Amino acid sequence: MSIEAIAESSAVSMTDDQIKEFLTEEGVGILAFPDEELPYLVPMSFGFDGSSTLYFIFLLFGSESRKETLATHAEKGRFLVYRAESLHDWQSVSISGRVDSVDDDEWDALRNAMQNAWHPDIFSSASPMRGVEGYHFQIDEWTGIQHGSPTA
């Protein structure tokens, strides 16, 4: 189904303020990087600074992380956040931008933004963990659509 067909079905575009509110409320989405033939997709907890930046914490296991490698080498990435309460009540925001590691002086901003992030319990018992890296996703563009109850 095309975006035009979705729009004709009573789904509507979200305003920038609705997108910001939605990103502030949600705490998990799907991060995608280009990778050879197929994109690499991974669910990620995230924080939003309320303006133009998403933050992630990568928990690194083993000697090599595909996610870390792709984040370092990809020029752009995509991030998808969605919520589906029912067939008639859902929101979806697609974001494109650049992912880079955070500098030492950005960790306070990362911690503040990550207040709403969802964190699966499985990682607390995983081992051996190599480390923790912080990343920011500078938003270049976003689009949002919704059907049913507006978020703002």
Score class of each variant (00 low, 15 high):
residue 79 F to T: 02
residue 121 D to I: 01
residue 130 R to Q: 14
residue 49 D to T: 03
residue 62 G to K: 05
residue 47 G to N: 09
residue 44 M to K: 05
residue 90 W to V: 07
residue 88 H to I: 13
residue 12 V to L: 15
residue 139 I to D: 08
residue 125 S to G: 14
residue 11 A to G: 00
residue 145 I to C: 15
residue 58 F to Q: 01
residue 22 F to P: 09
residue 115 Q to S: 15
residue 143 T to R: 01
residue 150 P to A: 11
residue 118 W to Y: 15
residue 20 K to G: 10
residue 84 A to R: 09
residue 80 L to C: 08
residue 120 P to R: 04
residue 76 K to Y: 10
residue 105 D to T: 13
residue 102 V to C: 00
residue 98 R to A: 11
residue 12 V to R: 11
residue 13 S to M: 13
residue 15 T to N: 05
residue 102 V to Q: 02
residue 139 I to K: 04
residue 116 N to G: 11
residue 78 R to G: 09
residue 68 E to H: 04
residue 23 L to M: 14
residue 133 E to H: 10
residue 145 I to N: 13
residue 9 S to Q: 07
residue 130 R to M: 13
residue 56 F to I: 00
residue 4 E to Y: 15
residue 104 D to A: 07
residue 134 G to L: 01
residue 84 A to Y: 15
residue 24 T to A: 06
residue 91 Q to I: 08
residue 41 L to Q: 02
residue 64 E to M: 08
residue 75 E to H: 03
residue 132 V to I: 11
residue 72 T to D: 09
residue 147 H to T: 07
residue 101 S to I: 01
residue 34 P to M: 11
residue 148 G to P: 10
residue 103 D to Q: 12
residue 77 G to F: 03
residue 67 K to A: 00
residue 143 T to A: 09
residue 81 V to A: 08
residue 114 M to C: 02
residue 121 D to L: 08
residue 38 L to F: 14
residue 34 P to N: 10
residue 89 D to C: 06
residue 75 E to F: 06
residue 152 A to M: 06
residue 140 D to S: 10
residue 96 S to E: 14
residue 113 A to F: 11
residue 41 L to K: 04
residue 87 L to T: 03
residue 115 Q to N: 13
residue 35 D to M: 02
residue 42 V to K: 06
residue 27 G to H: 14
residue 111 R to S: 10
residue 44 M to V: 07
residue 140 D to F: 13
residue 123 F to R: 11
residue 22 F to L: 06
residue 86 S to Q: 04
residue 110 L to G: 00
residue 77 G to Q: 01
residue 4 E to I: 07
residue 139 I to A: 06
residue 52 S to I: 02
residue 133 E to D: 11
residue 128 P to G: 13
residue 87 L to V: 02
residue 134 G to H: 01
residue 16 D to K: 04
residue 87 L to E: 11
residue 32 A to W: 05
residue 138 Q to Y: 10
residue 9 S to N: 09
residue 108 D to T: 12
residue 85 E to V: 11
residue 2 S to I: 07
residue 99 V to Y: 00
residue 3 I to P: 12
residue 1 M to E: 09
residue 59 L to W: 14
residue 113 A to E: 04
residue 149 S to M: 12
residue 72 T to W: 12
residue 98 R to E: 09
residue 56 F to R: 03
residue 102 V to M: 02
residue 86 S to H: 13
residue 103 D to L: 08
residue 14 M to A: 07
residue 13 S to K: 13
residue 47 G to E: 03
residue 91 Q to R: 11
residue 43 P to F: 04
residue 140 D to R: 14
residue 42 V to A: 04
residue 105 D to F: 15
residue 132 V to K: 06
residue 33 F to D: 01
residue 68 E to A: 13
residue 50 G to W: 12
residue 80 L to R: 05
residue 44 M to Q: 04
residue 114 M to W: 05
residue 148 G to D: 12
residue 109 A to D: 14
residue 132 V to N: 05
residue 74 A to W: 06
residue 11 A to K: 00
residue 96 S to K: 04
residue 15 T to C: 02
residue 57 I to V: 05
residue 41 L to C: 08
residue 23 L to C: 14
residue 64 E to Y: 15
residue 106 E to C: 06
residue 60 L to D: 08
residue 149 S to L: 13
residue 119 H to I: 12
residue 147 H to D: 08
residue 35 D to G: 03
residue 57 I to N: 05
residue 46 F to A: 11
residue 139 I to E: 03
residue 21 E to F: 15
residue 27 G to C: 12
residue 134 G to K: 00
residue 61 F to S: 06
residue 18 Q to M: 09
